[in-house]
Simulated scan of single mutants.
Amino acid sequence: MLNTLALEKKLLTLSVIGALGFALIGIVWGIISSSQMIFFDGIYSFISVILSMFSLFMAQFITKSDTKRFPYGKEVLEPIAIIVKYTVILILCIIAVVSAIQAILSGGRDISLGFALLYSFISTIGCWLVYVLLNKRKAASGFIMAEANQWKMDTLLSAAVLLGFLIAYFISYTPYAAFISYVDPLMVLLVMGYFLKVPIVEMLKAFREVLDMAPSQFIQKNLKEVTDNIQTHYQIDESILRISKAGNMLFIEIDFILNKESKIKTVADQDKVREEISEQTKNLNYKKWLTVSFTNNKKWAGKVIV
């Protein structure tokens, strides 16, 4: 647990430093080359710094125990933080699209191709290296996964910039050189077409967690198999399984409805079942809040007791 938290803090700190470096380079280089695409890349990286620092703060806050105010832990704050993060990115993407359309309608924008090509090459390689590093550890927490997605978007943005400027470079030696001024805003529109999808999809996932909805089918299937095996082995009449996910925490509630033939007779038998469930769900790489109840009357396993 401590190793995971230390890794999360280390990777989020790396993301902050990397984003700050690219932000400063992008903003300055964008102004020098007169490229809105590069300038946007720098602004995006600068906002990434703020968002990464926000993620780092939230990750540290969540790990601090406060059972009086948060009796079920603070993990639900993770999807809320992710929603905030992607909302900012979504707004930034919309602003970039509007600006690009305005540039196209006003006759495009002249750029310095030499500076633009050099920046886009350095940016693509640098962002890809950070993404690879974070992506290898994305299962450690939702924050690291969000950072990895953010750097993936940065890598694709930089790669699109590189491709666009290479095309513009070759066009400059053709009779169509007059169209070079449209390359920069067109690249913004093309890249944003993909960018707009990512924050929307990730926000929907986070909203599912905030609303306490069921997790992925893989998690549900795994836990259903474990529950069914226990039910069959101990001759249990029926079971009710409820699962939700918040951040890196799985909330698992299982109600077993016993009958006279059930092999569970004592508290020790009940604890044995709980231990078996814990062992059989170790392959799910999440923290778990496990509640296992036993009753002879199904009404005590209902949603609402009146």
Rank of each mutant, 00 (worst) to 15 (best):
I91H: 11
E279R: 13
D154G: 10
N297M: 13
I47N: 12
L290R: 12
F40L: 03
I80T: 04
N297D: 14
I180A: 01
I104T: 02
Q235T: 13
L284Y: 11
I144L: 06
A268V: 08
I80R: 02
F57N: 06
T63C: 14
M153T: 11
P175V: 11
K288L: 04
R69F: 15
Q270G: 13
E225M: 13
T124H: 13
G30I: 04
L166G: 04
L204C: 14
E209K: 04
V28D: 06
R109L: 00
V97W: 05
I38M: 00
F165G: 03
V130A: 00
I104W: 00
A148R: 02
F207E: 05
R109P: 00
V98Y: 03
V161N: 07
T291A: 12
S158M: 02
L92Y: 14
L258C: 05
F170H: 14
I38T: 00
K136S: 09
I219T: 09
S52Q: 02
A23W: 09
Q150M: 10
M187R: 05
Q217A: 15
V191M: 02
F195I: 08
S33L: 03
L156K: 10
A177L: 05
F121N: 10
S278V: 14
S15T: 15
S172Q: 01
S120Q: 07
N3W: 12
V210H: 08
L51F: 01
F57I: 08
D154S: 10
L258T: 06
S262M: 04
L211A: 15
I180G: 01
S262Y: 03
V16H: 01
G108S: 02
R109K: 05
F39G: 01
I240T: 08
E147L: 04
V76S: 08
L129Y: 12
F46K: 03
S181V: 11
Y131P: 09
M203P: 02
K68A: 15
F165M: 11
F251R: 13
Y194V: 10
S244V: 14
E209D: 03
L163I: 08
L196G: 03
W300L: 04
K221D: 14
A177Y: 02
I257Q: 03
L250M: 06
L186C: 01
L241V: 04
A19L: 11
S52I: 06
T155S: 12
T155A: 12
L118Q: 09
V16T: 09
S34Q: 07
E75L: 10
L223K: 09
L134A: 08
L163D: 03
A168T: 05
E275I: 08
E276K: 14
L190K: 07
N248P: 13
V76I: 11
E75H: 12
L163A: 05
I236P: 00
L162E: 00
T87Y: 08
V210M: 09
T13D: 11
G21E: 07
L284V: 12
L20I: 03
F57Y: 10
G247K: 02
S158R: 00
V188Q: 00
G26T: 08
F170M: 14
L117I: 08
L12N: 08
P199G: 04
Q220L: 13
E275T: 09
R242Y: 13
W300E: 05
F70H: 12
F195L: 12
A59T: 01
I200C: 06
D66H: 07
N285L: 12
M203T: 06
N283Y: 09
V130Y: 02
D271N: 13
L162D: 01
